[in-house]
């Protein structure tokens, strides 16, 4: 069983920059906005958008909360300086705390979701102000695992990196000259202090990317992955995560009543007519 997560970064870069340019210009736009978290995924989406549209046409948005790590802001600034894009910094503390203070002792997960959705609100508002579409920053690993806030960080006009596993995003980041501190640091949603993706998920991206590649891309059955040496509990846990999070990957189902219903037999691509 071969696990080949290697990509050709130049080829991927060519396809993805053309994809971004196509999706933006075909609807009459020329600009994009990207929420820059300081992490590798948004850095890669941002760099691709800057290459596709020209840096002056990409607005970098920094959205710190009071507990956000200082590195998040400074790493985002490194990118803004490197690419020479326009940028805005809009602290979300006031808008987020307006909800949080109403319920003392609110669970971290709820606070994290509120932050992710506050960032979405700002991104879409800036989208209108800058006349640019929101570029998605979710990778294939997190989409499959459902490690994302619905209508929060997953919200976007289109997503250039959603078919790349985290370890493939890393390869692409190197070819885009993303600063090494951004590539090297442990991935984190930075929703609370000390949070890391791998700590929260309970496994590493290196491990889970290999398993997802076998289960999803290569269509191996879970028991074949166990036979190949993956821990049975880990395989079951990942498989269940994929299944349980399908709701985050599809539009909400509409109850069918008529003879023609959106989502079932009213079928058009988004790019209809363009």
């Amino acid at each position: 069983m071969e696990i080949d997560l290697l990509i050709n970064p130049e080829l991927v870069r060519k396809i993805l920059t053309k994809f971004i340019a196509s999706e933006i210009t075909r609807v009459g736009y020329s600009r994009a906005v990207v929420n820059l978290s300081g992490g590798i995924d948004s850095a890669v989406s941002f760099a691709l958008a800057a290459e596709a549209l020209g840096p002056q046409n990409v607005l970098a948005i920094r959205l710190p909360y009071k507990t956000s790590s200082a590195d998040s802001l400074s790493h985002a600034q490194m990118l803004i300086d490197q690419f020479g894009c326009p940028s805005v910094t809009i602290p979300i503390t006031d808008m987020v705390d307006a909800l949080i203070v109403r319920e003392p002792g609110m669970a971290e997960i709820r606070k994290g979701n509120i932050m992710a959705r506050a960032r979405m609100v700002v991104a879409y508002d800036q989208s209108e102000a800058f006349k640019g579409l929101v570029v998605g920053t979710g990778n294939k690993t997190e989409i499959l695992l459902g490690y994302t806030t619905l209508y929060g960080d997953s919200a976007c006009a289109f997503n250039p990196i959603g078919d790349l596993y985290k370890s493939q995003v890393r390869q692409l980041a190197r070819s885009l000259n993303i600063p090494e501190p951004i590539i090297a640091k442990p991935p984190s949603a930075d929703l609370w202090s000390g949070q890391t993706d791998e700590g929260e998920l309970g496994f590493t991206y290196a491990e889970v990317d290999k398993l997802l590649f076998l289960l999803v891309d290569q269509r191996y059955r879970p028991e074949e992955c166990v036979e190949a040496g993956f821990d049975e509990k880990f395989v079951r846990q990942v498989f269940e995560r994929i299944r349980k999070n399908q709701f985050k990957r599809v539009l909400p189902p509409i109850a069918k009543l008529s003879s023609r219903t959106v989502g079932y037999d009213f079928l058009y691509l988004r790019d209809w007519g363009t």
Binding site: D4, L6, I7, N8, E10, L11, V12, I15, Q168
Partner: peptide, 11 residues
């Protein structure tokens, strides 16, 4: 439709 990504310069 282009598909099938690996380390090679072509899909």
């Amino acid at each position: 439709p282009g598909r099938g990504l690996n380390g090679e310069p072509k899909l």
